[in-house]
């Protein structure tokens, strides 16, 4: 009961907060009207963007500008991390980082994934953390918001989708930076360290000298949560007491995880001029989110099977393994956080996912497989748009009418691009997991055998492909094969699900507007909501159920047989 009350308060409160912020985000990303102050700001953004800042871009130019900017960020950040031992802001004299780990880390932060095969407090200098990783946390999140704004403009029927470099500045300076400043201040007040001093040294009661890592954690934490980045300043992420000290910082983090992805839905609805459609999409996302929370909490109230053979361990209150008790309730940092962080492609960790009961552990995987129940900032709504295209097409076929979305006909070309987007995600996860499960690349890195071991491999590729970044753990993943494979998956499946939907929007924008008639499929009523929900579940189940059966479901059935 506590868990569901907490979930309702966090999710409901954030949904309410997202209403005015979604309105503000629309104003920030898609200014309309000749407000004089805003016009000055826009001129400044265009000037900063240089000669390219004044042109209006079609989908292809927008996509190329996005890729070129992200490639440049990849190179600059790569140089900072690779050369950190020679650069300033390194008070603890952090050494060189191994080459494949640099590739994985920079690919991870460029792609808004923040999968970490390293521990920040062990490997990264403050310069690497701030100028490379935190900088990428801002611009990668801004890339997602910019891409959604461009997509929405295309769907609104505008032949030009905006200017990427201008949109990037709007998202960074008007949306993410002000929010991050507020949240970082609140986190610092809540006890999160914010200092450029090196590690503290203390003498324990036993007289042992202890080195306590610290740093500019509050700044890092704020954008990591708001930008659905999720990468921890410390290795244990938000289970570390300096990254999440209290019940209140825990609650604030969960709000921040959900906030901007929720605002993205409202922004989309306003730009396409269909706020009622956005309300329906929001409701479908909420249903899926609460469904996953309920299942995860339900299965987590059962004792962990890991202690089943130990009669002296009482587990009347459910599975406490891998939970942080300072957050007041084991469910707040356990199943609730794990579902929120994986539904939103955030990936910060508030409990040990490896310790969740098998069916509770399945829910984070479902979140990453669907990747559209709010999803990443901007990109979650883009993923949902792909499901909408599939749903519209299926609904049109079922009733024998030409499928239409927002007064534009959805034809075979758009459908092919949508299916390719869905299949790319599945392909990266399933092929990657199959190859690593069948070879020493994956097998030699496992901490567990059997279905749980398979879950560890499956989770890692799911996390990489969904640009989530959380770890199931129990996997020795800092090896060359893991670093290269997940690095490539993160980069490819960051941009493919942005490029192809932008192409769909560009294609739809060029089509003649069709008049609404009695036969037009309404995309803002409950029938379409049910159709969309069914499509998401059907596509997800058809694609990933066999893999789920081999991992968490098999493990659950094995435990049920034993007990």
């Amino acid at each position: 009961m506590d868990a569901l009350l907490l979930a309702t308060l966090i999710v409901g409160g954030t949904a309410l907060l997202s209403l005015p912020l979604g309105r503000y985000m629309t104003w920030a990303m898609d200014p309309t009207g000749p407000a004089p102050r805003r016009a000055g700001l826009e001129r400044l953004f265009a000037r900063v963007a240089g000669p390219l800042g004044h042109e209006q871009q079609g989908w292809k130019q927008y996509a190329i500008a996005m890729l070129a900017f992200n490639a440049l960020m990849f190179v600059v950040s790569f140089a900072f991390v690779a050369l950190q031992q020679h650069l300033p802001l390194n008070p603890d004299a952090k050494g060189a980082v191994e080459a494949s780990l640099v590739f994985n880390t920079v690919a991870s932060f460029t792609s808004n994934t923040n999968l970490q095969h390293y521990s920040g407090e062990v490997s990264m200098s403050y310069l690497s953390q701030l100028l490379s990783l935190m900088w990428l946390q801002f611009v990668s999140a801004a890339t997602g918001i910019a891409a959604l704004a461009a997509l929405a403009r295309g769907l609104a029927g505008r032949p030009e989708m905006g200017n990427f470099l201008v949109d990037l500045q709007r998202a960074t300076l008007l949306v993410l930076l002000p929010l991050a400043l507020i949240v970082a201040t609140l986190m610092a007040l809540g006890g999160v360290p914010m200092t450029l001093s090196g590690a503290a040294s203390a003498t324990t009661l036993e007289g042992v000298q202890q080195v306590i890592a610290r740093g500019p954690v509050a700044a890092f934490l704020a954008i990591k949560q708001l930008g659905t980045n999720g990468g921890g300043f410390f290795g244990p992420n938000c289970t570390h007491p300096f990254e999440n000290p209290t019940f209140w910082t825990n609650g604030l983090s969960m709000i921040c995880i959900l906030l901007v992805p929720m605002c993205s839905v409202w922004m989309f609805g306003r730009i396409v001029g269909r706020p009622r459609h956005a309300r329906l999409v929001f409701a479908v996302m909420l249903v899926l989110l609460f469904g996953k929370i309920a299942v995860a909490v339900w299965f987590e109230t059962a004792p962990t099977q890991a202690f089943a053979a130990l009669p002296e361990v009482e587990q009347v209150a459910g599975n406490f393994e891998g939970k942080e008790m300072r957050f007041g309730t084991p469910y707040g940092s356990g199943p609730l956080w794990s579902v929120l962080t994986t539904c939103t492609s955030n990936g910060s960790v508030g409990a040990m996912h490896d310790s969740l009961n098998p069916m509770a552990g399945l829910m984070p995987m479902v979140g990453m497989w669907l990747n559209a129940t709010f999803g990443g900032v901007g990109v979650g709504m883009i993923n949902m748009f792909v499901y909408i295209v599939v749903a519209v097409f299926l609904a049109g076929m079922m009733v024998g009418r030409t499928p239409e979305y927002l007064n534009r006909r959805v034809e075979a070309r758009e459908m092919k691009l949508a299916v390719l987007t869905v299949l790319a995600h599945a392909l990266f996860i399933l092929v990657g997991a199959a190859v690593f499960a069948a070879t020493p690349w994956g097998r030699d890195t496992l901490a567990n055998w059997g279905p749980h071991g398979f879950s560890e491999i499956l989770y890692e590729f799911s996390s990489a492909s969904a640009n989530n970044g959380s770890g199931f753990e129990g996997l020795g993943d800092n090896t060359v094969p893991w670093n290269v494979a997940t690095g490539l998956v993160m980069l490819l499946n960051r941009y493919v699900p942005i490029l192809l939907p932008l192409a769909i929007a560009g294609s739809l924008a060029r089509k003649r507007r069709t008049a609404e008639s009695a036969g037009t499929l309404g995309v803002q009523d409950a029938t379409f909501g049910a159709m969309l929900l069914g499509t998401i579940l059907l596509v997800g189940a058809l694609t990933f159920l066999p893999a789920a059966v081999l991992g968490p479901i098999a493990e659950h059935l094995l435990f049920a047989q034993q007990s």
Binding site: L67, F74, V75, F78, L488, L499
Partner: peptide
């Protein structure tokens, strides 16, 4: 040296994504 190889790998991935963008655009124009 190995660092340069991984840097090139990342840039090759971005180049492949740009090629994909061009290919989709050409396919749409057909």
């Amino acid at each position: 040296m190995l660092h340069l190889f991984y840097l090139a790998l990342g840039l090759a991935t971005f180049a492949a994504l740009m090629a994909l963008t061009n290919a989709v655009d050409r396919w749409e124009q057909d």
